[in-house]
Design a protein around this nucleic acid. Structure first.
Lengths: 251, 251
DNA sequence: TTAATAGTGTCTCTTAGACACTATTAT
DNA sequence: ATAATAGTGTCTAAGAGACACTATTAA
């Protein structure tokens, strides 16, 4: 649509060029905080840097935005290259634009956070990760016990966590961290590790079932020598808004 | 702090250069949706484009990010150049990174929204706007009656509005649209034009006063031939969080 | 005195949150 | 039978929202 206008206008008047190479052009990077739930705790994926700056330090997966890709595409590409994962919930977080973020020079970073369920990750991860650019190592870290990380990536993780904690309160984002079928106990544990708080079992189940977004699959999950749990599925394909209560919400 | 590390590391190992000029570097712009309340309606400031692309069309104030300024600084600078305003509430919104946003070529746009009160704007505006780059015209448009705008600026305004509507529900952002001293009726009208809904007077006043964030200035505002209204002031210097109720908020 | 806005309380209903026991299965 | 987790209901208190009249001033 904009291209249509452009074509139209360019016939009558020349379109001025953008700032030329070498003047006000910038290196733009993407950095992604990928979360999952594993061993009853919320984890974020870090990669070990092989080259300076910060060689040997842990950092978020990410890289430079190329010339022929959108910023979102760059984020997906980097995630795919460094983890092999292709289908994730991905959401833009914030753009960090200070001058001294990177010791190499001025780099503007568009940060994202992403959610995967642990099972899906284990299946796909590394099966298609790029050989040549393979990082020295990738590891999940509990968000409560992060190592020292490179650049301002600590700030990005903090900001992603804050967003995630807000988001699970009024959207169905938490479901992105679970497999397609899950028990209510698993769902509750997901909320608990995200929020960092224990929740009341009866109140939790009451609220979740009231929302009408869960489908009883009629299947059971046998996990040990105890009563098997019902498996539920989320009814929506996408992350949806569950409510929007505020101080003043006359909608 | 990162500079400290950089200095340390550069002594032992060379820091690789960023992508060179002319390869994967990008033009980065800022676009700002500046809101105010005027004549009982929520307005956004648009500027008339003097040069292609989209000559004669309305667009959001904005421009390219320079080499020696942070992205936030660029947003403030553009706002100052095009409106003369220096002190506003400014918050980053979203980064639009698609390839075909601009007919001139690939431009990544970091969008912001800003809030000013009409009185402050009338005093400062244009008193210090840059002469040379002065746009053909700037005008306030009611958000309900926007003209056709250039680029994807419609999307930016929509996104800014959505953010503003959410934000006033759980923070004190709406106060940024009012002068230092205001009546409760003015505050209510601000919420009404932002939300696009009438609100109940008694419930509104009850809730606002309960929050404990308003100081009675003991002054009155005489406005016509009716009972003068109390003038209140907001007790906080900054925008604060008023509440954070969600589905599950055990904090 | 009148026009015009400021200012004020109560009641109902919904919802949040505290709280403890029974059910079902594998071993 | 026992260990281990699944699953279930009630009560209370707080808050949201509906609703209408009196107060005060300038003109």
């Amino acid at each position: 649509m904009h291209n249509g206008h452009a074509a139209l206008l360019s016939r009558s008047r020349a379109i001025p060029a953008l700032p030329p190479e070498g003047s006000d052009r910038h290196v733009v990077a993407v950095d992604i905080a990928l979360f999952t739930i594993q061993d009853e705790s919320l984890k974020v994926l870090l990669v070990k840097r092989a080259v300076p700056p910060f060689p040997g330090w842990w950092s978020l997966p990410g890289g430079f935005v190329g010339r022929a890709e959108s910023v979102d595409e760059a984020a997906l590409r980097e995630l795919q290259e460094e983890t092999g994962i292709t289908t994730v919930y991905l959401e833009q977080l914030y753009t960090f634009g200070d001058l001294d973020r990177d010791p190499r020079g001025r780099v503007i970073s568009v940060s994202y956070y992403a959610l995967v369920d642990w099972e899906r990750f284990r299946l796909k991860a590394h099966s298609s990760a790029k050989g040549g650019a393979k990082p020295a190592g990738t590891r999940w870290f509990s968000v409560n016990r992060l190592p020292t990380v490179a650049f301002d990536h600590r700030k990005i993780v903090t900001s992603a966590l804050e967003r995630l904690r807000n988001k699970v309160n009024y959207t169905s984002a938490a479901f992105q961290l679970l497999p397609k079928k899950f028990t209510l106990s698993e769902l509750q544990r997901a909320y608990e590790v995200i929020l960092g708080q224990p929740l009341d079992k009866r109140n939790f189940r009451k609220k979740m079932l009231q929302l009408g977004i869960l489908k009883d699959t009629r299947e059971r999950q046998v996990e040990g020598r105890q009563r098997p749990a019902r498996l539920y599925a989320f009814t929506e394909a996408r992350v949806i808004k569950l409510q929007e209560k505020g101080i003043i919400v006359p909608f």
